[in-house]
């Protein structure tokens, strides 16, 4: 439902910074040919490496975005949703696309539909650090051990965060949050 959020215009203007860098690199190349050539080699290698692994990941992002309707699932995430609710909240965050601040408005909608605060925090946590397409990209660029360990630790972490936030916030704070989000 938040798919229409992608309203930022795709334009060539955003390449301006890059133009400056390319001109700079030419200047560097003219004055320090050896270092300049090395810069081009490093940049070229990395672009090639990334082009190899990026297309499937972005296609996956598109697939998630179009086929996973968040609205239908959020109805089963209330206070009594138990383990299933926990699982769905995390899955929703992990299947998401976009920066963390895009998750806040979605969390708002979820809360309005009766999702418990604990599940909201789990959703925010999963969104921030457990996104599947990101994991795939991390696996490819930084290796399986690095990526999987970090993923497992993140999984633990979002439970810790949800648990401590639950303890930290008095019931009056919680009421305030719910009231604010429902306004």
């Amino acid at each position: 439902m938040k798919n229409s959020k992608n309203t930022k215009k795709v334009s060539w203007k955003s390449f301006n910074g890059l133009n400056v860098l390319i001109i700079f690199s030419v200047v560097v190349f003219l004055f320090f040919p050896r270092e300049g050539a090395r810069v081009y080699r490093v940049v070229g290698q990395n672009i090639l490496f990334m082009l190899e692994i990026i297309p499937p990941i972005f296609l996956l992002l598109g697939l998630f975005d179009v086929w996973v309707s968040r609205e239908k699932v959020t109805q089963h995430l209330g206070d009594r949703s138990g383990l299933k609710g926990t699982g769905i909240s995390i899955a929703l965050g992990a299947l998401a696309a976009g920066p963390l601040y895009a998750a806040f408005p979605i969390a708002e909608v979820m809360l309005r539909k009766g999702t418990s605060l604990r599940n909201i925090f789990l959703f925010i946590g999963a969104w921030s650090t457990m996104k599947i397409p990101m994991l795939l990209f991390e696996l490819q660029s930084l290796g399986a051990r690095f990526a999987l360990t970090r993923y497992a630790m993140s999984f633990l972490g979002i439970f810790c965060i949800a648990f401590f936030l639950d303890k930290l916030l008095l019931s009056e704070d919680k009421q305030n949050i719910i009231k604010r989000l429902k306004e």
Partner: peptide, 29 residues
């Protein structure tokens, strides 16, 4: 729609992506 979305999000990230790779190129050299 999937293909268009994939292309758009790729294109959106492309400038930042290339910029950082370029800067990192300078940094490591």
């Amino acid at each position: 729609e999937v293909l268009i979305k994939a292309w758009k999000s790729f294109f959106m990230i492309l400038p930042a992506f290339l910029t950082v790779i370029f800067i990192m190129g300078f940094v490591v050299v």
